[in-house]
């Protein structure tokens, strides 16, 4: 078989598989709340977006961040405060929260991006801990209690979000939008530069590109979408609390991303769904949750290093290339 036909079959076949997969995903996410508790699914969606946003930095830019809880939790506080105290409409609260997390991302990114490897991770962790400290100290956050009884409000002044099913669909649309933004960014010239930087930064520089500028844009995009996820979660659950800004949260989302599959579009989402589902179902089983998740994570790291989705994709590719050669 000539090279030409190999490359052709490689490009055309996954498109149809992808199309089927996409349609199935849409159908499942539309009918799922009729079978599973919608608020649980809403939480899952928020974390799918959060993990996918972290993946922009962790997977596509190759930077280990341990500070993303600051964007997720910080935006949650802003959204909750805007809804409850300022009484802003839902969409304004979301926009304020995303603007906040973007600005915070710009600041954090500006300070952290010149460092690399573990130093980058430490700087993001330290900065996020400062946000955690502020969350405890500042009066508007409600300290240990957090901001509770947040009204969900009305979307565009007409759609009442206090209906849990409606809330689910609104979150679904916004998370889908967030995923679309990520997909678009990764498959653009910008995404190609990120991939090249991850591979060899010096080489990219010698082509006339300033890597730090691209890393900063990626970091801000990631922070903005993490903020969107945090704001949605705060409004859907009507609470913003300290749990969302702790370093545990930063660590957990990294774990979700790794578990699902780094540098893949949907892997982190799968990882997030798995972790959230485990937490949900294990919480009623009486088993120690953290221990179980830790165990599952260890098994995953040992058995499939590319993550759940990364390993599946690899298996699919291998089986197809074996078929092509026979």
């Amino acid at each position: 078989m000539s090279l030409q036909s190999v490359s052709k079959s490689q490009t055309s076949q996954p498109v149809s598989v992808r199309a089927i997969f996409l349609v199935a995903l849409v159908v499942i996410s539309l009918v799922a709340p009729f079978f599973v508790y919608p608020l649980f699914l809403t939480k899952m969606l928020c974390f799918i977006l959060f993990a996918s946003a972290v993946n922009i930095v962790l997977g596509y830019s190759g930077l280990l961040t341990l500070g993303h809880a600051a964007f997720f939790g910080g935006a949650a506080y802003i959204a909750a405060h805007a809804m409850k105290v300022w009484g802003t409409p839902f969409e304004v609260a979301i926009l304020l929260a995303v603007a906040f997390s973007s600005a915070l991302g710009l600041l954090f990114g500006f300070l952290a991006i010149r460092r690399q490897g573990i130093y980058f991770a430490m700087v993001t962790l330290a900065l996020a801990q400062m946000i955690y400290f502020l969350a405890i100290q500042m009066p508007f956050t409600g300290g240990e209690d957090g901001i509770t009884a947040v009204p969900r409000g009305m979307l565009f002044g007409v759609i009442d979000l206090h209906d849990t099913l409606t809330m689910y669909y609104v979150v679904l649309v916004l998370v889908a939008f967030g995923m679309l933004v990520i997909w678009r960014a990764i498959n653009s010239p910008f995404g190609h530069v990120l991939a090249a930087i991850k591979e060899n930064e010096a080489r990219v520089t010698s082509l006339g590109i300033q890597p730090n500028r691209y890393k900063l844009i990626a970091f801000v995009l990631s922070a903005a979408l993490s903020g969107l996820a945090g704001a949605l979660k705060a409004i859907a659950f009507q609470v913003a609390s300290l749990a969302d800004v702790t370093w545990h949260m930063s660590g957990e989302v990294v774990l979700m991303t790794l578990l699902g599959g780094l540098s893949t579009l949907i892997g982190p989402g799968i990882g997030a769904a798995v972790v959230i589902a485990l937490e949900h179902y294990l919480s009623t089983s009486g088993l120690p949750i953290m221990f179980m998740i830790g165990l599952i994570f260890m098994v995953c790291v040992m058995l499939f290093r590319r993550g759940i989705y990364g390993e599946l994709r690899e298996w699919y590719r291998r089986s197809r290339s074996a078929r092509d050669h026979s």
């Binding site: 190609h192 090249a196 591979e199 080489r203 010698s206």
Partner: peptide, 8 residues
């Protein structure tokens, strides 16, 4: 080493 990117 030509500097071709393997991911592109």
């Amino acid at each position: 080493e030509r500097g071709i990117f393997a991911s592109l």
